[in-house]
Design a protein around this nucleic acid. Structure first.
Length: 272
DNA sequence: CGAGCAACCTGCATGC
DNA sequence: TGCATGCAGGTTGCTC
């Protein structure tokens, strides 16, 4: 799944296909996602048209004529567009059918994803209103992030993955960005010097941007809305490479667990 | 308050 | 082959 580049790839893939199109019907085969899907969701969005398809953090925001569909892909969710909506596979939980015969289909084996409809200004929704800046925006800069890090003794990787502080940096890209920055994931955030942090911020942006250009990272079950995989997996330097040689110095990559997430790093290149 | 961690769920790889 | 175990891209909400 879905870190920010995968969600952005999905957003860019579906927007041109459904923009200004009217929703004809909604089929829910399984309501039990992270939160149960509202029974009245179909009747609430039916007849509305798509005004835009946006993204905030890892949330897809499908803005309709008078409200917003909020979709999160969780750990294993994906969205595909199909015209062959009569046949469906396991874990195809929700279909949104449009006037031109295109069906937006939500598939999610683990069901950690979510689909909600809201008529409040969407950025004020309780799922979104506490989120930190977008990592690719100007707002994520040293001036913002340095004072935050100086107040935290937590490992830098935990700080980087805290969505209240900055959104969209998931486990894969946190591992990769720290390796490229030569920062040990366990380093207390308040031990990182300004220059190092500036470098880290730039590398986070670069890695995310690069992954978007490659169409995301396909590990198991991610694919773009048109069914094609992403190609970033070929470029992963540490994620999933525990025990393998560092691409820089050949030292064996090691794992530590942080917040129960695997963190792979080179003990030689990423010194404390 | 912040920090740590259990919980949500299925599928897959591994080992006995 | 079968079964048990552990691990996986995220995030909320609990406890301490």
């Amino acid at each position: 799944m879905p870190e920010l580049p995968e969600v952005e790839t999905t957003r860019a893939g579906i927007e041109p296909e459904i923009l200004n199109k009217k929703i004809i019907s909604v089929t829910i085969r399984n309501h039990q996602l992270r939160w149960p899907i509202d029974n009245q969701l179909p009747e609430r969005i039916q007849g509305q048209s798509v005004v835009s398809v946006a993204r905030r953090a890892k949330y897809l925001l499908i803005r309709l004529t008078s409200g917003t569909l909020i979709i999160h892909l969780g750990m294993s969710g994906s969205i595909r567009l199909t015209k062959d909506y009569k046949s469906f596979k396991k874990h195809d939980h929700v279909d949104v059918l449009f006037e031109h015969g295109v069906c937006l289909r939500f598939n999610d084996p683990r069901r950690f994803g979510a689909i909600l409809y809201t008529t409040v200004p969407v950025l004020e929704h309780s799922l979104l209103n506490h989120l930190g800046p977008e990592p690719l925006s100007e707002d994520f800069n040293t001036h913002y992030f340095l004072p935050i890090c100086q107040k935290k003794s937590q490992p830098i990787k935990s700080v980087l993955m805290n969505a209240r502080l900055v959104v969209g940096v998931g486990n894969i890209y946190a591992n990769e960005a720290l390796f490229l920055s030569r920062i040990n994931p366990l380093t207390p955030a308040n031990h990182i010097e300004e220059g190092e942090l500036r470098n880290l911020i730039n590398i986070v942006k670069k890695v995310l941007h690069q992954a978007i250009l490659q169409g995301g990272t396909t590990l198991k079950d991610f694919s773009n809305p048109d069914g094609k995989p992403g190609y970033f997996a070929q470029e992963l330097l540490v994620y999933g490479r525990k025990g393998k040689p560092c691409t820089n110095c050949e030292t064996e990559l090691v794992e530590v667990r942080l917040q129960n997430r695997s963190s792979i790093y080179c003990p030689n290149c990423q010194k404390f």
